[in-house]
Design a protein around this nucleic acid. Structure first.
Lengths: 212, 212
DNA sequence: TATTATTTTGGTCGAACGACCAAGGCAATT
DNA sequence: AATTGCCTTGGTCGTTCGACCAAAATAATA
C-alpha cells in the first residue's frame, strides 16, 4: 500500500526532491509532454518505477515541479526591489538580473512551458494564476504612490519580463541599459534624466538583426 | 513514388491546406508534441496516411503551419500602424486589436508554442527568428525618428505584446486604455497629454486579482 | 536483536505513436 | 476514350509510453 500522501523518512524526501529537480531540469529541454517517467528517472539516476511511488502520476510530478519553480522565480527577484536605494535602480537591478538569469540556462523557459500547460490542466492553472497574482500584488505594492497607475504597471511589468524571456530564447539580445530606461518610462517613473544612456533622436544605423 | 516537392493539382493543394489548418488549430489545444498524425487527420476529416504523403514528417507539418501562422500574426497587424493618423493612435489600435484577438480563440498561443519548440528544432528556430526580425525591422522603421531609441523600442514592443498574450491566457485582464498609455510612455512617444485616460497619482483601491 | 513500516526494484500490460508501403481511385492530358 | 501520373486508402511494423504490481531490500522501531 504505497500512498505517500506525506512522506515520512528523510531518504524518501531526498529521492522525491531528486525527482522534482530532474523534472525541473528536463521540462525546458524536452517540453512539457516530452518529459516521461523513464527520462526523469534516468536523469535522476533512479529507477523508473520510483516515480509512481512518490507521485500519483507524471502530471502531478510536473505540476509540483513547475509550481515550485515558478513561485521561486517570480518572488525570488523581488528582494532586488527592496535592497535598492530607490525604486528606479531597483528596476534596473531587476532587468540586469534577468539578463544574467536568462543566459545562464534555459530553465527560465520552464515558466513559459507551465503557462502553456496550464491551458490544459485546471490544477496547474490555479497554481500558476495564484503565483502570478502574488507577483503582481507584490510589485504593485512597491509601486503604489510612486507611479501613476501601479495596478496595470505591475501587470505590464510582469508581461514584459516574461516576453523578454521568451524572445531572448530565440534571438539573444542583450537587454540592459536601454531596456531598463524604457521600462522606467513605461511605468511612469520620473527617470533621472542624467543617467539615460540611450542617445535619443538618432536613426538606426546598422541592421544586424537575424544573427546566428 | 510520392514526393510532392511541389504539389501540382488543385485538389492536392486543398487537402494540404486542410491539414495545415487542422494542425494550426490543434497546436494550441494539444501542445506541440501533443499533435499527432492521427489527430490532425481526424480534425481535418481525412485519413491518417495522408499526412505522410503531403509532408515528410509530422515535424515538417507543424513547422510549416507554425511559421505561416506566426508570419501572418506578426506582420498582419502592422497595417494598423500605417492606417492610423499618427503613430500614437496606431499603437493604441494595435493594443486594442490584441485585446480582441487574444480573447477570440487561443490560437495566439500557437506562436508561444512555436517559440518553445524552436528551442529543439534548428529549422523552426531559423524561421521564427527571421519572422521576429522582420517584425522588429518593420516596427523600427515606423518608429524611427519619432522616438528616442527605435531599435530597442521595437524589440521591447514585441516582447510586451507576446508577454501579454502569454499572461492573458491565464489571467484574462482587459488590456486597453491604460495599457496603451503605458506602452506609449515606454517607447518615448510624447503622449498627447489630453487623451491619457489613466487618472494618475491614485492609490490602488480594489484588489481584484486572481479572478476566475 | 526482532519486528514492522517504508522504500526500492524489475518487470508486465494495453494503448498510442511515427513511419512506411502497396494497392486502388481519380483527374487531367493526349 | 485511353493513358498517365497525382492522390488516397487502409493497414502493418517496431517503439515508447503511463500505469501498475508483487516481491525484495532497506531503515526505523521496539
Amino acid at each position: 500500500m504505497g500512498m505517500p500522501v506525506e512522506t515520512a523518512t528523510q531518504r524518501g524526501q531526498q529521492t522525491r526532491e531528486r525527482l522534482l529537480r530532474a523534472a525541473t531540469e528536463l521540462i525546458p529541454v524536452l517540453g512539457w509532454s516530452g518529459v516521461t517517467t523513464r527520462k526523469v528517472a534516468e536523469r535522476a539516476g533512479l529507477r523508473p518505477g520510483l516515480v509512481h511511488y512518490h507521485f500519483p502520476s507524471v502530471d502531478d510530478l510536473l505540476t509540483e515541479a513547475a509550481l515550485a519553480f515558478t513561485r521561486s522565480a517570480l518572488t525570488g527577484p523581488l528582494h532586488l526591489l527592496d535592497d535598492a536605494p530607490d525604486l528606479a535602480s531597483g528596476i534596473v537591478a531587476l532587468v540586469e538580473a534577468l539578463d544574467a538569469y536568462t543566459g545562464q540556462d534555459e530553465a527560465s523557459l520552464l515558466m513559459v512551458e507551465a503557462y502553456l500547460a496550464a491551458t490544459r490542466d485546471a490544477r496547474l492553472r490555479e497554481g500558476m494564476a495564484a503565483a502570478l497574482a502574488e507577483f503582481r500584488a507584490a510589485v504593485r505594492e512597491r509601486l503604489a504612490g510612486q507611479v501613476p497607475d501601479a495596478d496595470s504597471a505591475a501587470a505590464l511589468l510582469g508581461a514584459v519580463l516574461d516576453g523578454l524571456i521568451l524572445h531572448r530564447s530565440l534571438a539573444p539580445m542583450p537587454t540592459t541599459a536601454a531596456t531598463a530606461a524604457h521600462l522606467l518610462r513605461m511605468i511612469g517613473l520620473p527617470t533621472a534624466a542624467a543617467e539615460d544612456p540611450a542617445s535619443p533622436d538618432e536613426e538606426p544605423s546598422s541592421m544586424r538583426e537575424g544573427e546566428s
